[in-house]
Design a protein around this nucleic acid. Structure first.
Lengths: 348, 348
DNA sequence: CCCAAAATTTAACGCGCGTAAAGTTTTCAT
DNA sequence: ATGAAAACTTTACGCGCGTTAAATTTTGGG
């Protein structure tokens, strides 16, 4: 329990606090910038005063002069997707641990909002930004301009050449593991995806699917369903109902581009009385990609390829910190991809 | 498409921009404060200059002097819960539409984090804060202190007497509708909940359940499952497995305290081969509360009582704006509750 | 065309803090 | 004890903008 002089002397500024602590203002200023930059005895006196009085530097006055603030922007495309919420959580905490002030933003799937967020971010003079762009929907030139001004690390979705670095998951690793597993233990899967996916990862997954299937000597079979926006479950659900009604499947095996589509697919199967799983009494096997936080609780639980959350998030912040320390520029843009981990559950 | 003088004259401050636009700085300052406060002709000249040059006031310098900023803090207990992500989205957009700058924070279920967020929020001098507190886990005195300094409207979870107002859902309305529906169309439900719920709404729901059951002439039957934290699906899943194994149910009917527990419960039923629904071939009926964004895609889809999202969120921001305009204080603290809407799906 | 009201300009101060320069005190190895 | 390095104090300026007061210009109704 920390004792604080309550009510008494309301400290207005650093001048006052310095006087009360018996240290000159420039030294106090130095202390707040880096507590280790002052002599241990003076540090102790300042911290003693800090316990007696409730003072903290005015962040606006502090940031006014500093060319670069301690702010870090975190932008995700769709926060209502628990996947991004989880990643954002990790990123936030890493930033705080490193002494930065993270600000979280969600583009909510809209280009206009993404642009506005980047716009607002610029006037925050952030030390750096962690950006998971919308992807296909993104305004490439707007992001390019932004990256020219603000040190930016892209994650999750790559936009060729934009940002100082990209950290994400190796989509080929996702799909190759799921396809290989499914073909090894049963029939080769069809690939189930949105016709015009918002996310560039989707395209890479489709290509990987085709490549792996051909390498294994199977004919790829891609099912594209209509729908736009970020209501993937709804799209997957409707699309699956259509696929099931029109009997579009060539085998008893389906690989969804991502877990949220799969959740919709599973709901459709359940409604239609189609039992999904790898057991003998099941009519269909369904696997997917991402390891969505809810994938464990679908019916049946979802066999999927998991992102290496920790490494993607961890490396993203590490890279941003390096970028900041390098003065905001890297000599070459690097792309780091982490492989997936196959998570076997009941659906396939 | 807006033309902008690219690269050319980098405007450093309002002084420079004022000179370039041919208007004096105080007038320009006035314009940025309220575009309607200047003569239409001068407004036009400023806006013409704004299109030619890329200038925006330094937010730190702006906020330094103003006692109150245009910032609004939005704090939710757990952003990885899509329910809060959706509400936060609505709140954010309402704030932006009203000319404020929202900042979103998640306590991630931890008291320490909630306190740190409030701490950081204070130094942001926000015009107001929309706070959905952790509930039982919250540090009441910390929040009390915070509310004394910053105009705060509580939503979702009430803490008696704290904040200038509370806006939430009427838990009695939720439970009475689900219980009445279930008893009317089948056997009276047991109530399934966590032993020590984090959220105060849970307690109100339990009480409402008891009251409604007794009024209808049935004996209440409450099942409490172990587990703490915010991994509700996991807790519901484990708890349900135990309940099913030990045959703790007295009827074929269960009401879950909230949808995330129900999602776990449904997963357990599926694993155990217990068919859930209102059809004759089903062994169990399950209903719940909240209308979680995924409730439509569970297997079977979840019958649940829906929050009046729009009204709760809408009234929350309205109330906050009123509070801000009233100078940060209301004469009396109001509590506004919106009733639920019963959503009939397949699970009950 | 005239005049009062309204809007704008000019000039200047303040906000809270970063930071630099010059002078003073403390520290610590010799 | 001594001297230089390190840390601190004093003084002062600058950051970009809010804001005020007095002087000036513009506006619009009669």
């Amino acid at each position: 329990m920390i004792r604080r002089q309550t009510g008494m002397t309301k400290i207005k500024n650093m001048e006052e606090f310095a006087a009360l602590s018996g240290i000159s203002r420039p030294t106090v200023s130095k202390y707040f910038h880096d507590p280790d930059s002052v002599r241990p005895t003076t540090r102790a006196r300042i911290e003693a005063a800090l316990e007696r009085f409730d003072y903290r530097p005015n962040i606006y006055a502090v940031n006014q002069n500093r060319k670069l603030t301690k702010n870090i922007g975190i932008v995700v495309p769709y926060l209502a997707d628990p996947f991004f919420a989880e990643i954002a959580r990790y990123l936030e905490q890493s930033c705080i641990a490193a002494g930065y002030r993270p600000s979280l933003f969600s583009s909510h799937g809209e280009q206009k909002l993404e642009n506005e967020i980047l716009d607002g971010l610029q006037s925050m003079k952030p030390a750096g930004v962690l950006l998971a762009p919308l992807g296909r929907v993104s305004d490439r030139s707007a992001i390019e301009k932004f990256c020219a001004t603000v040190p930016t690390v892209l994650f999750d979705s790559n936009l060729d050449g934009l940002g100082a670095a990209f950290i994400g998951s190796d989509n080929f690793s996702f799909v190759s593991q799921t396809v290989e597993y499914m073909t090894r233990t049963g029939e080769p899967p069809s690939f189930f995806e949105m016709r015009t996916p918002a996310n560039p990862n989707a395209n890479k997954r489709r290509k990987a699917y085709v490549e792996v299937m051909e390498r294994l000597g199977f004919e790829p079979h891609i099912i594209k369903v209509d729908g736009k926006g970020w209501a993937f479950e709804e799209i997957g659900h409707k699309g699956a109902l259509k696929v099931l009604a029109e009997n579009e499947l060539r085998t008893n095996s389906v690989l969804c581009s991502n877990d949220r589509l799969a959740i919709g697919f599973l709901a459709a199967c359940y409604e239609q009385g189609i039992r999904v799983g790898r057991r003998d009494d099941c009519a269909l096997r369904l696997a997917s990609n991402d390891d969505h936080p809810f994938a464990k609780f679908t019916c049946p639980s979802l066999t999927t390829a998991a992102h290496d959350y920790d490494n993607v998030a961890g490396r993203s912040v590490e890279t941003l910190f390096e970028l900041i320390e390098s003065g905001g520029k890297f000599e070459t843009r690097s792309e780091t991809l982490f492989p997936a981990r196959l998570v076997l559950r009941d659906s396939a």
